[in-house]
Simulated scan of single mutants.
Amino acid sequence: MTQQETQTRTQDDWNPTTVEDYPAVYARLREDAPLAYTSDYDGFYGFMRYKDVQKGARDWKTYKSGQPFVEFPEFMKSIPIQTNPPEHTFFRKFLQQYFTPARVQMLVPDIEQLVAKSLDPLVARGGGDLITGFGTIVPQQVLARFLRLQEDAWETMAASLAEADSVRHDLEKHREVNKRLWNPTVESLIEDRRRNPQDPEVDVMTGVLELRPEGRAITQEEAVAIGVQIFSAGADTTTAAIGSIVHWLGRRPEVQAQLRADPALIPAAVEEVLRLAPPLHHTGRHATKDVEAYGRTIPAGTKVGLNVYAANRDPEKFEDAEQFRIDRSTNPHLTFGHGPHQCMGAPIARAELRIMLEQILTKTGGFELAAEPESNGRPLRTGWSHAPVRFVRR
């Protein structure tokens, strides 16, 4: 039986739904269809339980990377997310040096300054939209600082994301807009670094251009693919996480009071929001061989989604899995992935979220929802178009 015939004869277990429905839908699938199938997005199987998602993320020989987002039939070439060992190992080992704790700590003063620059006017006004007035600004500014770009470069990056977001319901247009916007931006940076190289120990793109994979000079295509990965990876997902913090903590004044009394708990609060509201629900893979699981066969070559959202709420892994609990002694959520493709930029995102929450709690008496946060409506994602808050004066 061909892959297409198998998918045609496989009854859908679910169809992608709205953000409000995801928790109940994923909980049902985790219990009744832990290997679920949908014909949407050209059809894919999705693992729903923590143990399977974690195992699949580690097992790159069975579940190879190549299409990182199950909803996109084609994505801009990105390195290392779309590669597999040994190619992936080479590029990731090189890039990892720019994301060590010491390197991230060097970026913290910049993050603190950028957070304050956007947050303080909102605090002075007594509130505002933490997406349009903060969340779509600060992550791009941090990324621009990390890449050592010109001061106003973040504005072009933010405009690019906004244009892509405007066609988010048309996946084909979204893909084309992304390719048109990101590649020229990355190519301009590469050209600048060729003319004006910086210290490769500090500047990642200068370091990229000095790479010699397999003993040869890096190609322009490879350099662009690495740049696309860096540009596209961190900004949008961090914006989504900012909205989720507002969504979860804006209606929990008792947790805010607890954090203000004991700021050491702030990182734990951030991790719990990340567990409950991962920006990306699925990690995309393709099966390299026929896989038997839960009485089903995933044919070789078939698209597979590792559902981190469902895994993060698996009661077999997390006590009170559907509840926000700041007192979790450990929180091994899979929001940033697992295994060889685990997100390298996670320490920067965590720093941004921690510093934002610290400053809000320090500069205000708390915050509350001025209106219900508005979902951006993206399929298979948790994200927000608006998150209006009202700050309580100290």
Rank of each mutant, 00 (worst) to 15 (best):
D236A: 15
R251K: 15
H286L: 05
T283Y: 11
A241E: 04
R325Q: 12
P332N: 04
G234Y: 03
D262V: 10
T302D: 09
L334M: 15
A223L: 08
I326H: 01
V224L: 15
G301Y: 01
D290Q: 12
I230L: 15
E214K: 05
T330D: 14
S232A: 14
L334K: 11
A235S: 02
T206C: 07
A240D: 13
V270I: 15
M205Y: 13
G207T: 02
H247A: 02
D314N: 08
E316R: 15
S329E: 14
A257R: 14
G234L: 07
I298M: 05
L209F: 02
P278H: 00
R275T: 04
A217Y: 04
V246I: 14
P253L: 01
A293P: 00
L249W: 07
G301P: 09
A293Q: 13
G250C: 06
L209D: 01
D236P: 02
I245L: 12
A310Y: 08
H281F: 06
V291T: 05
R328G: 02
A269C: 03
A293T: 07
T283D: 06
R296E: 07
A287F: 10
V228K: 03
D314G: 13
E214Q: 14
K317P: 09
K289E: 12
E316N: 10
T237E: 11
E214C: 00
A287T: 10
D236T: 06
G207H: 02
R328F: 05
G250Y: 00
I245V: 15
E254H: 07
L280P: 03
V291G: 10
A287L: 14
P332R: 09
Y309V: 01
Q256P: 01
A287Y: 09
R216Q: 15
E210G: 12
H286A: 08
E272A: 00
D320F: 12
A240H: 08
S232Y: 08
F324D: 00
Q256S: 12
A225C: 13
